[in-house]
Nucleic acid binder design. Structure first.
Length: 283
DNA sequence: TCTCACGGTTAGCAAACTCC
DNA sequence: GGAGTTTGCTAACCGTGAGA
């Protein structure tokens, strides 16, 4: 071994560890039996293993929304009707998009009305359903109803331009807020950033420094409401103690981020930073 | 499933207020 | 001082219930 070493030599399993003349810790080992892996590589591997474990584990049930198509839906439906659709899509079946009850039987009109809390509001429901049918958002065949998979579906996907909605959370939110509020959330779905869950003008941007975050005015413009309306409605968009949208203030600038427990794009577990952002427990 | 009338709710506007 | 936010008022919209 042609290198100068200090007196601190340690040897184990063919590996020398020592401190060189500059005081830097070094390791030397035969290339036939060992290879060099950086701490960064090790950490990356651990992260990937954790992500894979999360993917293989029992993930919360979700439905998928195609970000690039749903403008066709909210252009055709009222805000409240978008909220009804958001809730109803929690009941779509895998593969077919058929609307089903928990026992997998096809949903009847009465089942849908019950699910939407419109059991006693027949005209509201029929207006919603006819608007959906008129615009091919929901179709009917042999007495069964199907959500158009151009907009919503359940199951595996490869399309990166998809937002997942966790059904348990959506149902919980639906119980606690108005359908119109969920409709507002629905209008925000095309603007969810892949990495950060941020609401921004360029949700497909890879470089975090180039993300154009929405402020209240630009978010209101994007979803077609008044900024004052957003100011009034956002604090009401919560379930239990948890909020659906975080308002982050950096200096004087306000930004918005979706709760990853409700809407999320990535296939991996949300980061701890993102989870912590929605923890509102006080000291 | 549709229509209609009515009442309640919401969104938009503008003014006041707050914060940087 | 200016930009952004909140608040009060009001018109428009939406949901409701009854009836067909």
């Amino acid at each position: 071994m042609n290198k100068s070493k200090t007196d601190e030599h340690r040897y184990f399993d063919g590996v020398f560890s020592y401190t060189d003349e500059n005081g830097e810790a070094r390791i030397s080992a035969p290339a036939t039996t060992h290879r060099v892996i950086s701490y960064e590589q090790t950490e990356a591997y651990k992260r990937e293993q954790a992500a894979e474990k999360w993917r293989r584990g029992r993930q919360p049930s979700f439905t998928a929304t195609r970000m690039r198509n749903i403008h066709e839906v909210y252009d055709a439906l009222t805000t409240a009707q978008c909220g009804y659709l958001m809730r109803l899509q929690c009941s779509v079946d895998y593969v077919t998009g058929r609307l089903v009850n928990s026992d997998k039987s096809a949903m009847s009109y009465a089942d849908m009305r019950k699910e939407l809390g419109l059991a006693r509001k027949k005209s509201t429901f029929s207006e919603f359903l006819s608007a959906c049918k008129r615009n091919d958002i929901i179709t009917e065949k042999d007495g069964e109803h199907f959500v158009n998979q151009r907009y919503h579906f359940r199951g595996a996907f490869t399309d990166p331009y998809v937002v997942k909605a966790y059904t348990t959370k959506v149902k919980h939110v639906y119980r606690e807020v108005k359908a119109a509020d969920i409709g507002l959330m629905y209008r925000m779905l095309p603007y969810v950033h892949y990495d950060l869950n941020a609401l921004c003008d360029n949700p497909y941007e890879d470089d975090p420094n180039k993300i154009r975050w929405f402020n209240r005015k630009s978010l209101a413009e994007a979803i077609g409401v008044d900024p004052a309306t957003l100011g009034r409605r956002l604090p009401k968009m919560k379930f239990g103690d948890e909020y659906v949208i975080a308002r982050i203030k950096v200096g004087g600038k306000e930004k918005y981020t979706f709760n990853p427990n409700v809407f999320y794009r990535k296939d991996t577990k949300p980061s701890d930073d993102l989870i912590a952002m929605f923890n509102t427990k006080e000291a």
